[in-house]
Amino acid sequence: MTPELILGLLLLIVGIAAGAYPRTRDYLDRLINVEIAATGLMLVLLSFNETISLLTFVAVTALATAVLIRVIERRSGI
């Protein structure tokens, strides 16, 4: 149990709780909370030295954000 793993699991569970039960029912609110969980997973990957997956994951999270933002934007009509 390295410090990264502990912190990562903590952030993961906090982030999942935040994403699952956000404080407001705003799309963006939830989407930003998901970012916390993503950071947690990032640290978990880091603690096992899985850096290539880490790189891919970081990039793919950004892509997923772009995809979801596109939906949210059109949905809220801005």
Binding site: L12, I16, R30
Partner: peptide, 12 residues
Amino acid sequence: VHKLILADLTEI
């Protein structure tokens, strides 16, 4: 849309 975001969360 919330379902979609949650699906993203489950992936993680």
